[in-house]
Amino acid sequence: MVLLEINSIGFDGLGNPGIVATDVLISFKTALWFWMNNVHSVLDQGFGATIRAINGAVECNGGNTPAVNARVGYYKDYCSHLGVSPGDNLTS
C-alpha cells in the first residue's frame, strides 16, 4: 500500500529517498501527501491533534513536553498576531 501511495506522487521514495531533500517539487509533493494522509483528517480536533499527527510519541504523551509547550506558545503567538482564536485542545 505504501508503494502505491508513493507512486501516486511520482517518485521512487524507496529507491532514492534523498531526492526529497534535493528536489523542490518532490519535497512539496511529499509534504502535501503527508499532510493529506496524516494531518488533514484531524484538523477539527484542535492544534494538539495536529502535533500528535505530525510528531506522535516523539513529543506527545510526555515524550517531549517542553517541545509541545514551545509549539503551543508559537501557535498562540501567531494566532494573536492574526487576530484569531487558537481554539481548544492545544496540547492533546
Rank of each mutant, 00 (worst) to 15 (best):
R52C: 09
G48V: 01
Y74D: 10
A67D: 07
N7C: 10
I54A: 13
L14D: 13
Y78V: 13
I26F: 00
F11G: 05
F34N: 03
V20Q: 09
L32D: 07
T65N: 03
D12W: 06
V42P: 00
L90D: 10
N69E: 07
G46K: 01
C60P: 03
G87S: 07
Y75N: 04
D12H: 05
L4T: 08
V2F: 15
I9N: 01
T91S: 14
L3D: 13
R71W: 04
I19R: 03
G73I: 13
E5H: 09
L43E: 03
S8R: 09
T50R: 00
K76Y: 11
Y78I: 13
G87E: 01
N7L: 11
V72E: 09
G48L: 02
T91Y: 06
N16Y: 11
L4Y: 14
G62F: 04
A67Y: 03
G13N: 02
S92R: 06
N37W: 04
V39G: 08
C60L: 15
G87T: 02
S92M: 03
N55S: 14
G46N: 01
V2M: 13
T30A: 11
F47Q: 00
M36K: 12
G18Y: 08
D44C: 08
V58E: 07
A49T: 01
N55G: 12
V58S: 05
G87C: 01
L82W: 15
S41A: 12
G83T: 11
I51Y: 01
G83V: 03
